[in-house]
Amino acid sequence: MNGKIEIIIRPLAFILLATILCGIIFEIAGFSAILMFNSILDGAFLGSRSLEKSLRWALPLFITAVGVGISFRCGFFNIGAQGQFYMGSVCAVYVTEYMSGANAVIVIPLGMIAGMTGGALWSLWPGYLKLRYGVDEVITTLMSNFIAGLILVYVTSGPLKDQSGSGQQASTKILPSEFRISDASGVSLTIILITISVGITGWLIINRTSFGTLSSLAGRNPTMLKYQGGKIWQLGLVSFIISGMLAGLSGSIELFGPSGRVVSGFLPTHGFTAILVALVASYAVIGTAFSALFFGGLFSAALFLPIFTGLPTSAIDLFNAIIALLITARITLGKKFLRNRWSHSHD
C-alpha cells in the first residue's frame, strides 16, 4: 500500500516545493508571488475555457510521457522523445500527401500507424547501438533529436513545403478538414479517446504483463535479472520501441489535430517536458496523467502571464527548471540510475 500512496504524494510534493521556491524567487525579483500564482491558476484551470487549453497540451504530453516512463522504468535513459515526436509527424504527413484522395477513415489510422512506426524506428537505432555495442543512449538519443529536427526542416522547406505560405515559417500545407481529428483547440472526442486508450494500454503493459514486471527489475537491478535468465536486450529493445511509438503517435496527433500541418521546429520543448512529466510521476501511469495535466496547465498559463502580471512567458520556464532541479537532487534515484546504467553498459 505504501507504494501506492507514494505515487500520489511524490508528484504533489515536487509541485508544492517548486511552487514555494518559485514564489520566493518571484518575490525577490519584485513581483507579487500571489498575483503570479493566481494568474497561473486562472490561466491553467480556473479561467473560462482554460481547462480546455490546458488539455490541448496535456493530452499529447501524457501520451509521450507514458512512453518515456516505460523506457526509464527499464533503466534506459531514452531522452529522444522530441525527435521521435518529429519523425512521427513527418511520417504521418507523408501518408496524407500520398493518399490525399483517399477516404479519411483510411488515411488517419494509416497516418497514425506510420507515425508510430517512424517514432519507433527513430528510437530503435539508438536502442540497438546501446544494446549491441554499449553506446551511451543518453548521447545517441539526444543527438537523434537534432537530426530529426533537421529532417523536419528539410521536409517542411523542401519536398512538402506549402508554397502559398507567408514564408516566415516553413511548413506543410494545412490538411483538408476531413483529415482533421480536432480543430485548433486540440481537444476532441477522438483525441481524448486515443489518449485514454494509450493510458489503459500503458497501464496494462506496466502492471499486467511479464514485460512490466521484468522491466522494472531490469531498471532496478539488471545483474540480478541476468542471473534469473532474463534477456536485458529484449526488454531494452521493446521498451525503446514502445517509447518511440508513443512519441510518434503524439507527433501524428499533432498533425491531424491542433496543428493541422507540420511546421518546422514546432512544439520545440514537447519531448523534454514529457521527460519531466514522467519523472515527476515516477513512471506510474496514473501519476503521469496528473503531472501531464499540471505541465499542460503551465503551458497554457504561460500565454496568460504577460497580460496579467507583466512577467514574460518564460517565467514559466522557471517552474520547469526548478522541478527539473528538484528531480535531479533526488540523490537516491540518481545513484541507482548511475549504477544501473553502468551495469547495462558493462554487460
Binding site: G3, S210, M224, Y227, G229, K231
Partner: peptide, 29 residues
C-alpha cells in the same frame, strides 16, 4: 546484487525467474 533486486518488491523478486523464461508480452495476474 546478483540474487535479489533490493529496491523491488518481494513478489517481483520471487517471480523473476519464472517470468524470465516466458514470452515478454504475456498477461500476468
Amino acid at each position: 546484487m546478483e540474487g535479489l533486486s533490493l529496491t523491488s518488491e518481494l513478489w517481483e523478486n520471487w517471480v523473476a525467474s519464472e517470468l524470465a523464461v516466458t514470452p515478454l508480452i504475456r498477461w500476468i495476474n
